[in-house]
Design a protein around this nucleic acid. Structure first.
Length: 493
RNA sequence: GGGCCGUUAGCUCAAUGGUAGAGCAAGUGACUCUUAAUCACUAGGUUGUAGGUUCGAGUCCUACACGGCUCACCA
């Protein structure tokens, strides 16, 4: 019998013995009068060693216990804060005090009593009554080192959350960021919408989708890779400012920057163009920085990132010339670009057009070097099938991507609203695209039809929320900002 | 999918190819202001799995599983 089984059996035996005494080990009739962080705040200047006149009732997880014979100190963890409690045989009497000593670290309990400050200065509740609220059967991770094993932290996130305060902080930060983003867009008159996660034609991006099946409809669906085409249908429908903050699914490799399901903010604004979205994006990030961090600049993984506007803005050509050693005359020379890419070890199919080659050069040579917030503009039309062309340069589109810390954080453009042009580009896309395993490539005629009714001139943007949170929380991996990152299922042979 | 690294008690970690160990957690006892409480004693292991080499394997070799990093894939 393993150590774990022994401890579980001991605690199961305790449950039996409690039940014999008529004590329910899992009651739900205790109501705390105050949360633990509030106790610490309200009584932070309280200095009485004798105790308060008012009695508090608080609840939390027992995380430390120090018995001294006829007295016992312990700590309760609630809402991420720790509060000391003190029980003594004098106060509780023999029977109750024995029950208190029978509590295990990990148990959820409620206590009632006055508050006082110990000789060593710690705010403490004098336990007059206590209640077991949920018996814990398993030993907790080590009290000093916490839970270190990365795999266990992801698989049993609940343990990570209550043992490692830094981890808890990351997810509180994530929640505040998302709340602030919603507030930002709500105040600007955007409405939040929800569009299908299950799509017959996965559009709005070029990624491999997950496939699923609906029994009653007898039809295959794809989990969405982007909400884009549905959101623009809503703009056609007269919802002039919409945003959706929700999950996308892409059936691709996993990495520190990629999780198969990830959270994306997409928003669309009628009667605006990509230049306006650049200004809006700066404002959004500055507001987030100010409200969440209180500063515009902080360290991310050893690099100081400065969000003070205006941010750097480079055309994709400028970025390549500035950072790669590629000569200006070579930018239009497809053979030279190919040569350089093979030198970099980038695999090519041979079918890439000029725009695709440029983009690959940019992604392999430039992207990792863009540490400070940088807008990249003037993307080739060839790699932007949903973006509006520039009136002056039809091969270039009105589009920007935002890079921070070498990561793509946002992608935006003035939307293509010419249905004839859009159909042409969809057809080219279908013809040119490599056959992806199990994915039926076809033109989204329903979307074209919507465009034919008239899409107002519109600008739209997608922001990767997980990556944004990584930068705000200084996390090296996307798994640190996703509560339950995708891991392989443990197989039991 | 490739390469490198890792996997030892519930947790955090040790252990030249030679008897698997510590701290925390657990159990028993002592202790009425402790706080990584202290002190004494006790129990807890198929060293990720399966093979192999060896007189002898946690340690060396092979395969597999899971994870981390990285490369590839990736609008």
């Amino acid at each position: 019998m393993s150590e774990l089984d022994i401890q579980r059996d001991q605690r199961l035996a305790k449950i039996d013995s409690l039940r014999e005494k008529g004590i329910n080990p899992y009651p739900n009739d205790f109501r705390p009068s105050i949360g633990i962080p509030e106790v610490l705040d309200r009584y932070k200047d309280f200095a009485d060693e004798k105790g308060s006149s008012e009695r508090l009732s608080v609840a939390g997880r027992l995380v430390a216990k120090r018995g001294h014979g006829k007295t016992c100190f312990a700590h309760l963890l609630g809402d991420g804060a720790r509060l000391q409690i003190y029980s003594s045989r004098d106060r509780l009497g023999d029977e109750e005090y024995a029950l208190f000593n029978g509590l295990d670290i990990g148990d959820i309990i409620g206590v009632e009593g006055p508050i006082f400050r110990t000789r060593t200065g710690e705010l403490t509740i004098m336990v007059e009554r206590f209640f077991l609220l949920a018996k814990s059967l398993r030993p907790l991770p080590e009290k000093w080192h916490g839970l270190k094993d990365i795999e266990t932290r992801y698989r049993q996130r609940y343990l990570d959350l209550f043992t490692n305060p830094e981890s808890r902080q990351v997810f509180l930060l994530r929640s505040r960021i998302i709340k602030q983003i919603r507030e930002f867009f709500n105040l600007m008159g955007f409405i939040e919408v929800e569009t299908p996660m299950m799509q017959a034609i996965p559009g709005g991006a070029a990624a491999r989708p997950f496939k699923t099946y609906h029994n009653a409809l007898d039809q295959e669906f794809y989990l969405r890779i982007a909400p884009e085409l549905y959101l623009k249908r809503l703009i056609v429908g007269g919802l002039d400012r919409v945003y959706e903050l929700n999950r996308n699914f892409r059936n691709e490799g996993l990495s520190v920057d990629h999780n198969p399901e990830f959270t994306m903010l997409e928003f669309y604004m009628a009667y605006a163009d990509y230049k306006e979205l650049m200004r809006l994006t700066e404002r959004l990030f500055c507001e987030l920085a100010e409200k969440i961090k209180g500063v515009f600049t902080w360290e991310y993984q050893g690099n100081r990132i400065d969000f003070t506007p205006p941010w750097k803005c480079l055309t994709i050509h400028q970025a390549i010339l500035e950072n790669s050693g590629v000569k200006e005359k070579d930018l239009d020379d497809m053979d030279m670009l190919r040569k350089r890419l093979s030198e970099e070890g980038v695999p090519l199919t041979g079918k890439e057009g000029h725009g695709k080659l440029l983009l690959k050069i940019f992604e392999s040579l430039i992207e990792p070097k863009l540490i400070q917030p940088t807008f990249i503009i003037d993307f080739p039309k060839e790699v932007s099938p949903l973006a509006r062309s520039k009136d002056t340069q039809p091969d270039i589109v009105e589009r920007f991507e935002l890079y921070v810390a070498g990561k793509e954080i946002a992608n935006a453009f003035s939307e293509l609203n010419d249905p004839v042009d859009q159909r042409k580009r969809f057809i080219e896309q279908v013809e040119d695209s490599e056959e992806m395993e199990g994915v039926v490539k076809r033109v989204d005629e329903d979307y074209i039809q919507a465009l034919e009714y008239g899409l107002p001139p519109t600008a739209g943007e997608g922001i990767g929320i997980d990556r944004l949170v990584m930068i705000f929380a200084d996390c090296p991996s996307i798994r640190e900002v996703i509560l339950f990152p995708q891991l392989r299922e443990i197989s039991n042979p």
